[in-house]
């Protein structure tokens, strides 16, 4: 007989509730059951009004980020077996406004993602049947930072973003760094305009929890420190070349 898991889920329906409240559920689970499957079980059988984002169930689309016992995790890659005997406290992703139940408003994150010019600004044009040569080493240099699935867990983990919502945040800087390192790109100068600001890389005090919670090992904390070096070099250059700034 499958074991039972006690779950406390933070509910919030904007049209009925003034503030979030906790609803308790009891969900049967086996060795394979993921938190996402448990939430779908609740929605199909216990309370149809429970709303949450999900799609791929294989930790690649980045929809199902939420807080599990206070830790930002992907629901599809969190298994009830690891919480046997405990109560699972499920809350919406931290540091974002709650839209409804476990759905948060990610528009701040998406807007910053668009501001960082996350696209190749090419050094030289290429004909349409000719590729830029990029050795495996050149690819390997930025490849880790191109693995970000935009799930937002690092924003939920970052105390600096909690304290100052102007901070553009770990994932956006990692994406900027991914393009700044790409051998085909020449857009670093433009992206540095945003990174050089107080709310750019300079809001980061290297807590390092963003890299700890990242489900894809992108290590945004490292990207931020390396971007600080870029920004500092750019600062020095701008100060010594007259009228550059």
């Amino acid at each position: 007989m499958a074991d039972k898991m006690n779950m406390e889920i933070l509910r919030y329906r904007p049209e009925q509730d003034e503030k979030p409240w906790v609803q308790k559920f009891e969900v049967p689970f086996t060795h394979e059951t993921s938190l996402l499957e448990a939430l779908c079980y609740i929605k199909d059988n216990l309370d149809g009004s429970l709303s949450f984002r999900w799609s791929c169930r294989m930790a690649i689309c980045g929809s199902c980020g939420m807080m599990v016992n206070g830790t930002p995790r992907l629901a599809c890659k969190t298994f009830l077996r690891d919480y046997a005997g405990e109560v699972m406290r499920i809350e919406p992703l931290a540091n974002f406004p709650i839209e409804r139940d476990l759905v948060v408003d990610l528009s701040d994150f998406i807007e910053k993602l668009e501001r960082i010019k996350p696209y190749i600004i090419p050094k030289e044009e290429k004909k349409d049947d000719e590729e830029y040569l990029q050795t495996p080493t050149q690819l390997e240099k930025y490849h880790q930072f191109s693995g970000c699935i935009n799930c937002g867990l690092c924003y939920a983990a970052c105390p600096q973003y909690k304290l100052n919502k102007e901070f553009i945040g770990p994932a956006v800087i990692a994406l900027a760094y991914r393009y700044n390192l790409d051998s085909r790109d020449a857009g670093m100068k433009q992206r540095l305009e945003l990174l050089n600001q107080e709310s750019g890389v300079w809001s980061c005090t290297f807590v390092g929890y963003c890299s700890q919670v990242c489900p894809k090992g992108v290590d945004p904390a490292s990207a931020i420190q390396l971007s600080k070096i870029h920004s500092t070099t750019d600062y020095i250059i701008s100060k010594i070349t007259p009228g550059a700034d």
Partner: peptide, 24 residues
């Protein structure tokens, strides 16, 4: 729209809530 996003308060002792933050 009937949208009413809810902002959770930022507690001053946020860093006591999580061992990782306390060590930081």
């Amino acid at each position: 729209s009937k949208r009413k996003p809810f902002n959770r308060p930022v507690e001053a002792n946020w860093w006591t809530r999580k061992k990782f933050y306390t060590m930081y």
